[in-house]
């Protein structure tokens, strides 16, 4: 294989997988014939045209589904990202603070001391099952124990300490940071929505896994990396920035980011938004999210298949 062919193949990866399976060899043949043999890379205008054509082909993938199915997929990804992010954040926090006893926190009865670990672990299982399974009943079966793992410590801690936030968890007898009341309610609501949306919309494409993986990795970096909050913030903000730029091709990632930020904010901003929390951020957050969502859905309308309207 010549260097020109290798580089041309690399450029063709801009096209979606299904398109490449059908067209890549034919396009490669044409590209190699049209490019002088002594070159190592295709000409700049060929590279530009491949980039534009690949992005157009990716945008065309959405046009096979109506707007509603595309919105469902975007909301599903946003919820999966939020639940996964929160679970990894809590597990990392438990690991990082093992053995530390913060002042004023309530110790849980030892009988339910294992639940803070089980809750996030089971949440991760729910996210994985919802992502890969096409059967809603399987997702529901995974979600029920996870919901129980949230409700048991919540009830136990509320019975111990009725006023204020219902903190109070124990890891092997040691109190560590757990989950608050509002956060629990939001987590359970998001899990319910995830179960409802599971098995609908389009198949979960592998392309989603890269940004999702980066988002899930970021809280682990924050807790275990030792003072790398900026790195975490930059990582999450980079995913958000690329999603905003990607709106030209596909508006769904931007909707997913809006759902993620909204869920995180409603849950008390315990994770991401503490990094950028200030009164000004809170004031502009909701109108900003609303505007971003409206823009993304408006754009997605043109990227989705048009459904025939029934006339009255």
């Amino acid at each position: 294989m010549t260097r020109l062919e290798r580089h041309s193949r690399l450029l063709l990866h801009v096209y979606p997988k299904q398109y490449r399976a059908e067209r890549a060899e034919e396009m490669l043949g044409t590209l190699l014939e049209a490019t002088p043999e002594e070159r190592n890379w295709p000409r700049a205008r060929d590279a530009r045209a491949l980039l534009a054509g690949g992005l157009r082909a990716r945008a065309a993938l959405n046009r096979r589904l109506p707007l509603r199915a595309n919105v469902r997929t975007a909301v599903f990804v946003g919820l999966a990202a939020f639940l996964g992010f929160s679970a990894v954040a809590r597990l990392s926090n438990l690991y990082a603070n093992a053995g530390v006893i913060p002042g004023g926190w309530t110790r849980l009865p030892s009988s339910v001391g294992w639940t803070p670990i089980l809750g996030p672990l089971l949440t991760l299982v729910v996210v994985l099952v919802a992502w890969f399974s096409r059967r809603r009943i399987a997702v529901l079966a995974a979600a029920l124990p996870a919901a129980a793992a949230f409700l048991i410590p919540l009830t136990a801690s509320c019975s111990v300490r009725l006023a204020g936030h219902c903190y109070g968890y124990a890891q092997f007898g040691q109190p560590v940071r757990g989950i608050g009341f509002y956060e629990s309610v939001i987590q359970l609501s998001c899990m319910t929505c995830l179960v409802t949306l599971a098995g609908s919309g389009e198949p979960r494409r592998s392309g989603w896994l890269v940004p999702l993986g980066l988002v899930l990795l970021s809280p682990a970096l924050l807790e275990l990396g030792g003072g790398v909050a900026e790195v975490t913030a930059v990582l999450v903000l980079a995913v958000a920035a690329v999603s905003i730029a990607w709106i030209v091709v596909d508006a769904r990632p931007m909707i997913a980011v809006c759902v993620f930020v909204l869920a995180d904010w409603l849950g008390g901003g315990g994770n991401l938004l503490t990094l950028i929390s200030s009164p000004a951020v809170t004031v502009v957050l909701l109108p900003g999210l609303g505007a971003a969502l409206a823009l993304a859905i408006w754009r997605l309308r043109y990227q989705s298949a048009r459904t025939p309207r029934l006339r009255a």
Binding site: A34, L50, G54
Partner: peptide, 13 residues
């Protein structure tokens, strides 16, 4: 008119 490969296949599609 010098068609680039990407332009040609987008047009053909």
């Amino acid at each position: 008119v010098r068609l680039a490969t990407g332009t040609l296949y987008t047009a053909l599609d």
